[in-house]
Design a protein around this nucleic acid. Structure first.
Lengths: 339, 339
DNA sequence: CTGTTAGCGCCTTCAA
DNA sequence: TTGAAGGCGCTAACAG
């Protein structure tokens, strides 16, 4: 393994000068610098991160914590695409990404605390929390900041009291309203639950702006209902929806699973999608490809979000930024055939 | 941070004795051992892995390489569940899991080689390749073994010439044949492509054993066709299938996407699933929940496979096993309503 | 601008 | 059975 000493021997300089040259930390003549860089290149030098970590008393590990709100979300595509984005960014740096899973919710709190402590004891250079927008994890932010470990949350909402990259659901739904309005739809229903953050605000802003009626339809599902249940609810709530809003000509659903159910339900009662009623989903799940017709939906740019989070975290680690702030990332409409 | 010296001071022993006691490497009196363990517990000692790595000239990083055969497979659920299984196992050890992505196929080879070299230069303690069953990656196995880095492949086939955990597709399809036979089906078609490894063998073994006709139906799809295309092929091949095998009363499809298409296609032509024709899919994708009726399928135990791979890799790292061998993991049928 | 020195925490000699 | 010494590769502090 090529080490500093090898470069030192090769160039006739001291180990220290080589080290300074490679780290670009000044006090090196241009001549020495060039010689070192050339030798390092030729010999294929790679720093020994273990030695560097030991010396600097800090690791070069970025821990990504995937918050698992629900058993089925262990490998949720939306999260995993973000993780892949983080890894993509880090692969071009000296940092390594480690991946961790943590259940949240009251009955997992003790175990989560223990595993988070274990994580902190490894002193990662930074932490990225994926999907950790829940209030129930504030203890985690506190612990990390207490130990001075930079942390960024990828979240569905802003104002976490820490750095965050957040998906602008509000704008996404607003865009969907605009999209439907431009298609000539004038009676746009939002089908969701009262707690579906961002979506309601974006919807209300949209209908207000375009002078439309606020037609909120509460599907009365649990936020974390199983996905097939959500589908079933969508399919079976169609009658109620049509009774409550007979004039409806478009629906924005708070999840693709619900939207898929609605599409199936409308078919059953003989309403044509999208001509009679347009349907827009949310999240761009794989399922969108298989509904009939395929589902137009509002997508998160997951990979980009992951990359942005990693980039911002490294800035924070290197003290390029100081005060906490939220970076907003836009959603965009994926147009298929349901709207 | 609590280090060996702290425990040494606390117990009045030397650093060295403490170290030996903690690592259970003998030459320590029972008395000293107990005192050390107690102190370590009390003080909350955790080894400094950077120091240990530096000293031992080896890392405690297990690199998981997720092979990406196709753009959409970056975050394929089947792979990611395996990754989660690896992480679950490792979280109870001193090892860390890092995650990497690598495209395979001729046009990515150069980049892959570079990124694999970069990975090897970090000297991971071991490597787990997920979905790396392709011949095109043999160079990778060679490089790892050249550098003496233990490697395990999670694969769809055996006989990789290295340690592997492989999913027994053959048995999975055989079980499906048995399952359908027990349901009274006697004209079971296998719908797939000629290259879908394991499935054909399992099918042929099954029909032979139960004295059935070998009814293979070639769907003429590319192995890596996009998933919506696969669905479409399934839907549109129904007529050909019925023409070729009018007597068919069950179909085993080589992928859930194809199976979902078949279900949709049978509905169009008025064949009832499962009464007229039973359909069994492969992989247990999320889509199975949303077909009408929901899809019975053959599932891989992904998490278990990941755990098994991690366990076996650590054994290999610690020289508990020597010669290469393949561990076969069974698939199992998930019964829903399509069969 | 450059080189020497010391030490991060751990583990492997080797001596007691 | 125990302890002392040395060094893994790197970088900060200091001296030249």
């Amino acid at each position: 393994m090529v080490k500093l000493k090898d470069i030192a021997d090769h160039t006739g300089l001291s180990i220290n000068t080589v080290s300074r040259a490679l780290r670009d930390s000044g006090y090196v003549s241009a001549q020495a610098r060039d010689a070192v860089l050339k030798a390092a290149q030729e010999l294929g030098y790679k720093p020994n991160m273990a030695a560097r970590s030991l010396r600097n008393q800090r690791s070069y590990e970025i821990a990504v914590v995937n918050f698992v709100i629900h058993e089925r979300l262990y490998c949720d595509t939306l999260s995993m695409e973000k993780v892949a984005g983080v890894q993509k960014f880090l692969s071009a740096t000296d940092y390594e990404m480690t991946l961790h899973y943590m259940n949240i919710g009251p009955k997992h709190e003790e175990k989560s605390r223990r595993s988070f402590s274990a994580l902190l004891r490894r002193k990662p250079a930074g932490i990225i929390c994926v999907a950790g927008g829940e209030k129930s994890t504030s203890w985690l932010l506190a612990e990390a900041s207490e130990q001075n470990i930079p942390l960024i949350v990828i979240s569905g909402g802003h104002g976490m009291g820490c750095d965050s990259i957040y998906i602008d659901r509000e704008q996404g739904v607003f865009d969907a309203v605009k999209f439907l309005f431009d298609k000539g739809k004038r009676n746009i229903v939002l089908a969701g639950v009262t707690t579906c953050s961002g979506r309601i605000e974006g919807y209300e802003f949209g209908v207000q702006k375009y002078g439309l009626q606020n037609l909120f339809f509460n599907v009365k599902a649990y936020w974390h209902a199983s996905i097939d249940k959500m589908f079933y609810i969508g399919k079976s709530c169609v009658k109620d929806l049509l009774k409550k809003y007979p004039e409806v000509d478009a629906v924005i659903a708070y999840s693709d699973y619900l939207a898929a159910g609605l599409v199936a339900g409308f078919q059953v009662v003989g309403r044509k999608v999208p001509d009679d009623i347009a349907v827009v989903g949310f999240d761009n799940r794989e399922l969108c490809l298989f509904t009939d017709p395929p589902l137009t939906t509002i997508a998160q740019p997951n990979a980009e979000v992951g990359e942005a989070a990693a980039s911002k975290l490294l800035d924070k680690i290197n003290n390029k930024i100081s005060e906490n702030n939220d970076v907003k990332v836009p959603m965009r409409i994926i147009v298929r055939e349901s709207a």
